[in-house]
Simulated assay, not measured.
Amino acid sequence: MFYSRDFDDDFKLKIGFFHFSSCSGCQISFLDMFEDAVEVLDAVELVYSNMLTKKEEIPEMNVAFVEGAFCLEDKRHTELAREIVEKTQMIVTVGGCASFGGVRRFSVGGQAPQPAHQSFVPITEVEILRPKIKYAIPGCPPNPSLLYNFMLALLEVNEEFLQPFEYMVLTKDASGFDVIKEVVSKGLCVGCGTCVTACPSGALTFNQTYNKPMFEASFCVHCGSCLGACPQSFKPYPQPVYF
Rank of each mutant, 00 (worst) to 15 (best):
V221S: 03
F18W: 05
P144E: 07
S225I: 03
R82I: 00
S99D: 01
T93I: 12
C97Y: 08
G224S: 06
K87S: 04
I128V: 15
E166V: 09
E83H: 03
L31S: 07
P231Q: 10
E35H: 12
S99T: 07
C230Q: 09
P240Y: 08
E60C: 03
K186C: 03
Y48Q: 06
F106L: 09
N62I: 04
V221K: 00
E39Y: 13
E160I: 15
M1Q: 11
G187W: 09
V169S: 09
P59V: 10
K132N: 02
P213D: 03
T124M: 06
T124H: 06
M61K: 02
H19G: 01
L46H: 06
L155I: 13
T197C: 03
I123R: 00
N62E: 15
C220M: 09
H19I: 13
Q89W: 07
I180M: 15
T205C: 02
F150C: 09
K186A: 02
S107N: 13
M33I: 08
A136L: 08
T124N: 04
Q111G: 00
I133V: 14
S185T: 04
G176Q: 06
L227D: 01
F7I: 04
A69G: 13
A112K: 10
K181D: 06
C195E: 04
G224K: 05
P142W: 07
R82A: 13
S175L: 05
